[in-house]
Simulated scan of single mutants.
Amino acid sequence: MKRFLDVFFVIFAGIFLLIPILVVSVAVKVTSAGPVFYWSDRVGRYNTIFQMPKFRSMLVGTPAVATHLLSNPNTYLTPIGSFLRKSSLDELPQLWSILVGDMSFVGPRPALFNQDDLVALRSSYGVDALVPGLTGWAQVNGRDELPIPEKVALDVQYLQRKNMFFDLRILWLTFVKVVQRDGVSH
């Protein structure tokens, strides 16, 4: 049922968001050199690697590490990168990942391929069995600001509590957080 709803809502969202997606695509292209999309290697269900697209908010050549590990992340942002991240518009291309089944609307956020500590801790608790999400319980409870053990504890809570009503609650809280630009550090 969850997969059916993901496909249904991604098609609806894709139609509704087509104009904003086109506008952001043009804005990324005209404000910095390089491709419109950044395809990042991410860890999916059962720790398989998949390619996750985002609108490019960082300059070409930025190291492929979690943003908080960069010495000065702001120096790597494109002219509109900060706006894309704070508004979460950089996440819109992930609708593709939902459509093809690599992601769901709700689940733990997919780790970067090199976040071995996060992947190992999630695996030890069985969180790796979940399809990663565009948003998740950890994202509405701290997003970028959470240390890995707290993030995984929230992922485990999601694993234990997951159901359609909990997913709807997380989606609503995500909407509120995005509107308030809460929990975004760059």
Score class of each variant (00 low, 15 high):
residue 32 S to N: 01
residue 30 V to N: 01
residue 129 A to K: 15
residue 148 I to R: 12
residue 6 D to F: 11
residue 61 G to I: 01
residue 107 G to H: 04
residue 120 A to W: 11
residue 60 V to F: 00
residue 182 D to R: 15
residue 125 Y to K: 15
residue 16 F to P: 04
residue 131 V to A: 12
residue 54 K to G: 03
residue 182 D to H: 14
residue 34 G to T: 07
residue 98 I to L: 11
residue 25 S to A: 12
residue 32 S to T: 09
residue 81 G to M: 03
residue 80 I to F: 04
residue 75 T to V: 13
residue 120 A to T: 15
residue 60 V to S: 03
residue 28 V to W: 01
residue 84 L to T: 08
residue 142 G to P: 08
residue 185 S to R: 14
residue 171 L to H: 04
residue 51 Q to F: 00
residue 164 M to A: 14
residue 53 P to S: 04
residue 22 L to T: 10
residue 163 N to V: 13
residue 61 G to H: 02
residue 24 V to G: 02
residue 5 L to G: 01
residue 56 R to N: 06
residue 15 I to D: 06
residue 31 T to S: 09
residue 142 G to A: 11
residue 15 I to Q: 06
residue 124 S to G: 10
residue 55 F to A: 02
residue 67 T to N: 03
residue 10 V to C: 13
residue 88 S to K: 15
residue 114 N to W: 01
residue 129 A to S: 15
residue 22 L to R: 03
residue 115 Q to M: 12
residue 163 N to R: 11
residue 21 I to A: 14
residue 103 M to Q: 06
residue 70 L to M: 09
residue 105 F to S: 12
residue 163 N to Y: 07
residue 157 Q to Y: 00
residue 40 S to F: 00
residue 23 V to S: 02
residue 176 V to Y: 00
residue 92 L to C: 03
residue 132 P to E: 02
residue 161 R to V: 01
residue 3 R to W: 12
residue 101 G to F: 10
residue 115 Q to E: 15
residue 28 V to D: 03
residue 77 L to F: 10
residue 17 L to S: 05
residue 166 F to I: 15
residue 46 Y to I: 00
residue 186 H to T: 10
residue 57 S to G: 02
residue 183 G to A: 07
residue 157 Q to E: 14
residue 41 D to F: 05
residue 138 A to L: 11
residue 113 F to K: 11
residue 50 F to W: 01
residue 166 F to T: 13
residue 165 F to N: 05
residue 9 F to P: 03
residue 66 A to W: 04
residue 157 Q to T: 13
residue 26 V to M: 12
residue 114 N to R: 01
residue 88 S to Y: 11
residue 155 D to Y: 08
residue 43 V to L: 09
residue 145 E to N: 15
residue 117 D to R: 11
residue 83 F to Q: 05
residue 48 T to A: 13
residue 35 P to Y: 00
residue 13 A to Y: 02
residue 89 L to A: 06
residue 103 M to A: 08
residue 86 K to L: 09
residue 178 V to P: 05
residue 169 R to V: 09
residue 182 D to Q: 15
residue 171 L to A: 10
residue 159 L to H: 13
residue 108 P to A: 09
residue 24 V to P: 02
residue 63 P to A: 04
residue 130 L to Y: 06
residue 126 G to C: 09
residue 156 V to E: 12
residue 60 V to A: 06
residue 121 L to T: 07
residue 97 S to A: 14
residue 136 G to D: 06
residue 120 A to E: 15
residue 129 A to V: 05
residue 62 T to S: 04
residue 35 P to R: 08
residue 13 A to L: 13
residue 1 M to C: 06
residue 181 R to L: 02
residue 174 T to K: 09
residue 164 M to P: 00
residue 98 I to T: 11
residue 17 L to V: 07
residue 148 I to K: 12
residue 83 F to C: 03
residue 135 T to K: 08
residue 36 V to E: 01
residue 125 Y to T: 06
residue 39 W to V: 14
residue 106 V to S: 12
residue 57 S to V: 05
residue 185 S to D: 10
residue 130 L to D: 08
residue 61 G to L: 00
residue 12 F to Q: 08
residue 42 R to Q: 05
residue 34 G to E: 05
residue 160 Q to W: 00
residue 94 Q to W: 02
residue 105 F to A: 11
residue 75 T to S: 12
residue 127 V to A: 11
residue 38 Y to G: 00
residue 59 L to C: 05
residue 147 P to N: 15
residue 151 K to I: 11
residue 22 L to W: 08
